[in-house]
Design a protein around this nucleic acid. Sequence first.
DNA 1: TTCAAAATCATACTTTCGGGTGATTTTGCA
DNA 2: TGCAAAATCACCCGAAAGTATGATTTTGAA
Lengths: 161, 161
Amino acid sequence: MVFKSAGNFYQKHKQVILYGVSLAVLLFVLKWIELRFLIIDHIIEVYSGAIALVFTGLGVWLAMKLTTPKVERIIVEKEVYVTADADFTPNETERLRLGISGRELEVLQLVAEGLSNQEIASRLFVSLNTVKTHSSRIFEKLEVKSRIQAVERARRLRLIP
Amino acid sequence: MVFKSAGNFYQKHKQVILYGVSLAVLLFVLKWIELRFLIIDHIIEVYSGAIALVFTGLGVWLAMKLTTPKVERIIVEKEVYVTADADFTPNETERLRLGISGRELEVLQLVAEGLSNQEIASRLFVSLNTVKTHSSRIFEKLEVKSRIQAVERARRLRLIP
DNA sequence: TTCAAAATCATACTTTCGGGTGATTTTGCA
DNA sequence: TGCAAAATCACCCGAAAGTATGATTTTGAA
């Protein structure tokens, strides 16, 4: 975690750090050359340079510590289409009139969700044949010939949402 | 423009600037008190303090300048409720986005009416194979696996009533 | 308890759907 | 005019859907 952050920081400010290090090395070399001759005379410059470096670092640290991170907030609105049939109430009357049993309605609902007969069988823990039997009866009672027509008709009759 | 930027900068880094100014004032006052007596003896400390202040400022400025703003992307799902089919207007935008051609949409509408592929073929005066090709492409584009799911999805996307 | 309706499952068969591949023609736009 | 997209069609294959028939078990109400 710490290493990762450090690496991240390094990556982000590579140039600055390299620049700083290079500068420091350069100054060090130059100073070292002159050091034995000039250190006495230029003690103040060396001292000032050190202070400058340290306090530049302090300034950077301060800024990092104290400024709230700049955050650009981009809000992307993603449209989700929803049909507003929250107020659906199943038409029990129609169901009884057509003689559609509870289990058949269950199957019908799953058909309407786009499930295959096999998927419906698994969902209801019954065999594929059972589902086929149910759906066949549904088609008879709704007087249709395919599952799509059944769904269409059941929707019109408010049997399913 | 310049003033605006300056004001903006001040607003963003209010605390830092105030901190710096306060520190400067404090040091100035302290120094001023001792100044007349000690300035000669403590010229190096004054000099160092000035350098420290200036380079702390430089450090802060550097940090401000170089930190990359963090970008936070927030995706908000905005639910768009659509009413039932009386005021249906086909969602042309969505159709084009999905790359569904005009003929494909025609087939899709007939599928939604519960017609078999053969019936659709007769209705459109084309061969059964053509209808199959169209419907296969529709399933791909709508990312579904059956005609029922296709109708379901197309309704949600307002491609069909 | 009895009995009809509902629910379950099976087997066999036909039709339809859907995927994959490849090809040709039509059309609208640059 | 040339080209890419759209539209058309064919053939094959496997999976899924649908039909028909018959049977057994569960269940709920009379």
